Simulated assay, not measured.
Amino acid sequence: MNNVASLPRRKSMRIYVGNVPVGDNMPISVQSMTNTPTTNIEASIAQIKSLEKAGADIVRISIPTMDAAESFRLIKKQVTAPLVADIHFDYRIALKVAQYGVDCLRINPGNIGNKHRIRKVVECARYYNIPIRIGINSGSLEQDLQKKYSSSTAQALVESALRNINYFDDLNFDMFKVSVKSSDILTAIEAYRLLSTQIKQPLHLGLTEAGGARAGAVKSAIAIGSLLLEGIGDTLRISLATNPIEEVKVGFDILKSLHIRSRGINFIACPTCSRQEFDVISIVNDLEKRLEDIITPMDIAIIGCMVNGPGEAKQATIALVGNRKSSSLYEDGIQLDERMNNQTLIDKLEARIRAKALNLKNRNHI
């Protein structure tokens, strides 16, 4: 993990989810969640490995039944990504997956049941040195808080969180992180702001049920980006109704845009206008697909004309600036003698970007 900037960060304690540090100014980790049936062991393993390849630092997996817990035991043996078990209602499932090596438990203490059951989960987590995420969602608030506030306000989310945190404080257990998620942007932002001043534990950022790929990404970027700019947040998950790999991509795009953490290529491209001298849109779309496997941080600029092209090129790792028949190529801000034919440039440009990525990777390992 690579932090590329140091925005002011809220001071928090550090916990570990597997080998991934969370809190205490550690790099902000990106999480996702499987959407395969956990009892489909092969499909779940394949998806976890795909998420890890896409850059996910931590993967959450739902364990709704004891059969799923037994499947988890086999899944855990065949993957390397730290796994968080999502547990609701039946506290015994949490005890079982703890025995099977889970790296973190995600529970909503309010739906686990009475304090005796919560105590059992906490004692088990302490024994196995496993952190817990207290996950508060606007859609599953305690009934008394629903009556008190009449709607899922930020104050209701925070009161629920503090109530559950008090259970843990009474049990002298502080190895936890907290989320206060809402599907409403303003409610989520306010809840995290309120909670951030009242506890020292790490905060897990996210919107719950954010929406589809486009709308969910926009809403998540606004909410999570706003909080990160204020120094609030230690780990994040983008909740999208799409392939979970897209959640990882959006998460890194948010961090990359804020210069917090960089992974892979940052494309700088003009929206195009009548001045464009080659097909910027299709070239950028094609390159994004071709170069998804590159994890080396790079800025690649594709600009369709000479108006803003040279200025952007001087700040990019590699840049292409449009001319009528053949386009100018820049590397590390310097214009090269080589020019690229607009009709045949895509393969050559991909090859040059890959060569540069390999060079940077080797240089960083020296």
Rank of each mutant, 00 (worst) to 15 (best):
residue 312 E to P: 01
residue 158 V to P: 07
residue 282 S to I: 06
residue 62 S to P: 13
residue 211 G to W: 03
residue 322 G to M: 04
residue 222 I to K: 08
residue 142 E to P: 13
residue 192 Y to S: 11
residue 98 A to I: 06
residue 351 A to C: 12
residue 249 K to E: 15
residue 215 A to Q: 15
residue 277 E to C: 06
residue 165 I to N: 00
residue 194 L to I: 11
residue 153 T to M: 09
residue 80 T to N: 11
residue 141 L to P: 04
residue 271 P to G: 11
residue 139 G to K: 02
residue 176 F to H: 05
residue 53 K to Y: 10
residue 48 I to S: 08
residue 260 I to D: 02
residue 99 Q to Y: 13
residue 276 Q to T: 11
residue 226 S to W: 05
residue 27 P to Y: 01
residue 181 K to W: 05
residue 246 E to I: 12
residue 75 I to W: 06
residue 8 P to V: 09
residue 44 S to D: 07
residue 296 T to I: 10
residue 237 R to A: 05
residue 299 D to A: 13
residue 233 G to T: 01
residue 350 E to F: 02
residue 366 I to Y: 13
residue 97 V to M: 04
residue 86 D to G: 11
residue 144 D to Y: 11
residue 173 F to T: 09
residue 304 G to R: 01
residue 46 A to M: 11
residue 220 S to N: 04
residue 206 G to F: 02
residue 253 D to F: 10
residue 42 E to S: 14
residue 84 V to G: 01
residue 134 I to Y: 06
residue 270 C to H: 08
residue 11 K to C: 06
residue 236 L to C: 05
residue 313 A to M: 00
residue 349 L to H: 03
residue 197 T to F: 07
residue 204 H to N: 01
residue 149 Y to E: 10
residue 199 I to R: 00
residue 271 P to T: 11
residue 360 L to R: 15
residue 65 T to R: 12
residue 84 V to N: 04
residue 291 L to K: 10
residue 249 K to Y: 14
residue 115 K to D: 15
residue 106 R to P: 06
residue 265 I to W: 01
residue 140 S to E: 04
residue 283 I to T: 14
residue 254 I to C: 03
residue 30 V to M: 03
residue 354 R to S: 06
residue 20 V to S: 07
residue 293 D to L: 14
residue 200 K to P: 07
residue 15 I to Q: 02
residue 232 I to R: 02
residue 134 I to E: 07
residue 360 L to E: 15
residue 180 V to H: 01
residue 82 P to A: 09
residue 47 Q to E: 14
residue 214 R to P: 12
residue 341 N to K: 08
residue 322 G to L: 03
residue 46 A to E: 14
residue 74 L to W: 11
residue 178 V to L: 09
residue 210 A to L: 03
residue 73 R to I: 11
residue 197 T to E: 13
residue 194 L to P: 08
residue 342 N to L: 01
residue 364 N to T: 13
residue 14 R to M: 01
residue 194 L to K: 05
residue 23 G to W: 00
residue 54 A to K: 10
residue 77 K to Q: 13
residue 111 N to Y: 00
residue 328 S to M: 12
residue 35 N to L: 14
residue 279 D to F: 00
residue 304 G to T: 04
residue 73 R to N: 15
residue 101 G to V: 02
residue 268 I to N: 09
residue 167 Y to R: 14
residue 156 A to H: 05
residue 293 D to G: 15
residue 305 C to H: 07
residue 140 S to A: 05
residue 169 D to Q: 12
residue 322 G to N: 03
residue 281 I to K: 12
residue 111 N to S: 08
residue 245 I to Q: 12
residue 267 F to P: 10
residue 365 H to K: 14
residue 288 E to K: 13
residue 307 V to Y: 04
residue 172 N to T: 10
residue 336 L to D: 02
residue 49 K to Q: 10
